[in-house]
Nucleic acid binder design. Structure first.
Lengths: 230, 230
DNA sequence: AGAATGCAGACTGTCAACAATGTTTCGTCA
DNA sequence: TGACGAAACATTGTTGACAGTCTGCATTCT
């Protein structure tokens, strides 16, 4: 019964194009589609059991949001991000996250502060247990919750679009314990600035934290290169 | 001869969908399509002499970039921006413009400084001549040039997307002389901060300037309301 | 042997038709 | 007269087919 309801509701609010778009997005972010790879319309249409129309409409949207790029008469490809573009994306991420934290510092409630502190504590635990997977998940949740609390829809939207693009980098998310410790210390400092109601400091720390993310990315990439060469 | 070349080049780089997309975007930004208005696929297809396929693909892209929104089985509509959304967009614009000016302050050349100063002077002239149209054009050019000089593709892209969204507000661009003077004084201050190499100050001034844009928008809207009531 | 040409297959770009959904009009009944 | 229902119309969602373009390979010519 509930299935039927949800199926109908689904059908009422989602078109095939929407479903296909989500699916392609998922395939890209999960790495199922590698950067630079071409999307074969016919093959994908056959696999999903739809015609090429919805596929083409879906890819159009993803082209516009930067996940794909399109070449006339050749098709659409999963976007390959250059180092320079990655740098720029990180820059903007830092700026937007800084803004969000500045804003949140001015309107955060004690309950929200407790929630953020709790997450930081949980991340500390995960580091002690050397549980990288949990840390990764909690880290995502921390940023997600901050975006939620800041209650700024457009900032959230922009930030999430940027995050999706960085996912195109397919960077090894694995991080060493020292790096996780460093990152979480920055989290704690941000929360403390918010607790003190020091919006400017919260902003500066948040920007530094995001830039730290770029630095840690560059480091882990460099190490990967060295492993490959050695 | 050159015509042939360009015609082929056109065909090589632009598909019908691209052309339609540009056209719809133009129609929205020029006000030809009002906010909230529905886009009739058949009618538009007939007018442009194409089939509905390219129209649908084009609208999909514009939905993704926020200029249109789509309702299943009803069609796509020119997006209507609420006051809250407009506020949020102005917030982000300020943040991005601040970042751009901060960056530019660190790498601007004497020639570029001279170019910006020149624009500020021209705007002063336009104000003295009470030439609102010229001021409007020069103001756009000033921001455009700043974005250019800053050489940050992603920031430019994000900023321009935000600008397009604010165009959905269809605000009377007319501005009074005192307001233009205020705005241009802010321009001059930004350029001076850049000349001094004071990136932090340039950033702060640029953010204030963008927030001033929001304030001036609210004022002119309020006046419009009062005119309507009175 | 190497370069140019022609051909076949695969794929994208575009279109027209069909199916499903929403809206309006008009007639009927209380 | 006004509310209700059904049929006609308009519009979107989806599909399959056709035309144009690109790629790779075989063939031909030098």
């Amino acid at each position: 019964m509930n299935d039927v309801m949800s199926a109908i509701a689904q059908r009422r609010t989602q078109t095939l194009t929407d479903i296909v778009q989500d699916e392609i997005e998922r395939m890209i972010l999960s790495g199922e589609l590698a950067a630079g790879e071409r999307i074969n319309e016919q093959a994908l249409a056959a696999r999903l059991g739809v015609s090429r129309g919805p596929i083409r409409e879906a890819t159009r949207g993803l082209v516009r949001s930067g996940l794909l790029n399109s070449v006339v008469n050749l098709g659409v490809f999963v976007r390959q991000i250059t180092d320079e573009e990655a740098n720029e994306i990180y820059d903007l991420r830092a700026v937007v996250f800084g803004f969000v934290c500045q804003r949140l510092a001015n309107l955060i409630t004690p309950q929200q502060l407790a929630a953020l502190s709790g997450l930081v504590a949980q991340m500390d635990d995960a580091i002690e247990r050397d549980d990288g997977a949990s840390y990764y998940r909690l880290n995502l949740e921390f940023h997600d919750v901050v975006l939620d609390f800041a209650a700024h829809g457009r900032a959230r939207q922009t930030y999430e679009a940027l995050i999706k693009e960085t996912h195109l980098l397919r960077q090894s998310a694995l991080s060493t314990a020292p790096r996780m410790r460093e990152s979480n210390a920055e989290h704690r400092a941000i929360v403390e600035a918010m607790a003190a109601g020091d919006a400017d400091r919260a902003r500066r720390l948040a920007e530094d934290h995001a830039h730290g993310g770029k630095r840690r990315w560059l480091l882990s990439r460099q190490e990967a290169e060295e492993r490959k060469e050695g």
